[in-house]
Design a protein around this nucleic acid. Structure first.
Lengths: 215, 215
DNA sequence: TTTAGCTAATCAATCGTTTGATTAATTTTG
DNA sequence: CAAAATTAATCAAACGATTGATTAGCTAAA
């Protein structure tokens, strides 16, 4: 049946995403992925053509959910610049933490020095979110919400970098936090709201010099 | 000659460091490395025992410079907690930006989910710097220099994460900054001091609620 | 002669991929 | 409708290539 076929492909993609993110593209073997997914090895080539085709398919599947991540927040006329930024952070943390194994995959690919269509494609997608935040920051400076001499570009690096650090170096951040961050429950119930609160306090202090700890 | 041997080993390590950081541990082959270095393949095993031994040797060579990176700052009795932290940031940015290809290597390895002696070793090394900063932050809270309700653990993630983001995603951060960050001159003369200033303002605002822009 | 440095040749293991055969499902034909 | 033909999905087995590692033998210096 057609539906079963799609489900099966989806299942392979789920497994492959996990294995690739754990071991890297070169570190993961097709035998490993097919074995983990419980399908015959040949099915990977049958469905996706090649190992690289499988890798690409993982990205194709996720592109849409990333393109709409932060957009349309900046266009709301009824929100202050700070509220927009706060909402961006909430959205971003919510969205990214659940897709953390895919995020690791992206970041590892981006750190490679090889030029490829995939790298360019990922860059383009990630820049949408970057520019959205930049727009809000610039607007906030213009309307006096934020200090005029803030380093907009490095603020962006801090926003994305803080989250990336936690996700990309699970061994380190688990030691820092005193809890295995691969624990989904801990992540969802504890870490996620904590990161939201922290990021907002950090940014508010820097952008507005107002360390309001009640919010 | 003994000196030639050492030079040769060092040369192999230089080449291997570059190849590993470009292609990852699994993506780089021993033939590739030996070919690039202009030595016989068997020499890698002769000198370093194995591919992993070679990989480890790259780290061994750098360990000393990393272990002494931040230590002894925290023990200075004549410095305020803030000055210690500020000095840590200066040292860290100075040291890390020049070794950025080695840094990418470390971060890529750390984002893998495979348990290995190497991962444990790197974790151990990186934790030295982490704990040094944590010590300073805790001390600062204790003596009243910093707010008592700051999120120490996530501050650490921001310090290391901001820098990692810039180094690990050169394509993105180049677009953000409007300049190729692989340009050594730009990095050294412009970005490095800028990151120092930014990080200190950001942290001061959050930790001390004092956005003193003159420092 | 002895020994450390070095090399070409080769090892078994694993890689991604392909093959031909088999089964299940669907369509066409009589 | 039933039988035959066709297509799609799946499998075990094997492919050639490449992997990291080892071997035995060579070279040059002490």
């Amino acid at each position: 049946m057609d539906k079963d076929k799609i489900d099966k492909k989806d299942h392979i993609l789920d497994v492959a995403e996990k294995v690739f993110s754990d071991l890297g593209f070169d570190g993961a073997s097709t035998r490993m992925i097919s074995g983990e997914a419980g399908v015959n090895m040949a099915m990977l080539n049958y469905y996706f053509g090649s190992k690289e085709g499988l890798f690409l398919a993982i990205f194709e599947r996720k592109i849409s959910s990333f393109q709409t991540l932060l957009q349309n927040i900046g266009n709301d006329e009824n929100m202050s610049s700070w509220d927009k930024l706060a909402k961006c952070i909430d959205n971003y943390v919510d969205r990214i933490i659940v897709n953390n194994c895919f995020q690791k995959l992206i970041n590892r690919e981006m750190s490679m020095n090889k030029r490829s269509d995939l790298s360019d494609k990922i860059t383009q997608i990630l820049m949408v979110n970057v520019l959205e935040i930049k727009k809000i920051l610039d607007e906030g400076i213009k309307n006096g919400s934020f200090f005029k001499d803030i380093d907009t570009q490095l603020v962006i690096a801090s926003i994305f970098g803080t989250k990336n650090y936690i996700i990309n170096t699970p061994n380190i951040s688990s030691l820092i936090l005193g809890h295995d961050i691969r624990d989904e429950k801990f992540l969802e119930e504890h870490l996620k709201p904590r990161i939201k609160i922290y990021m907002k306090r950090l940014l508010k202090a820097y952008l507005m010099n107002d360390n309001d700890n009640t919010k």
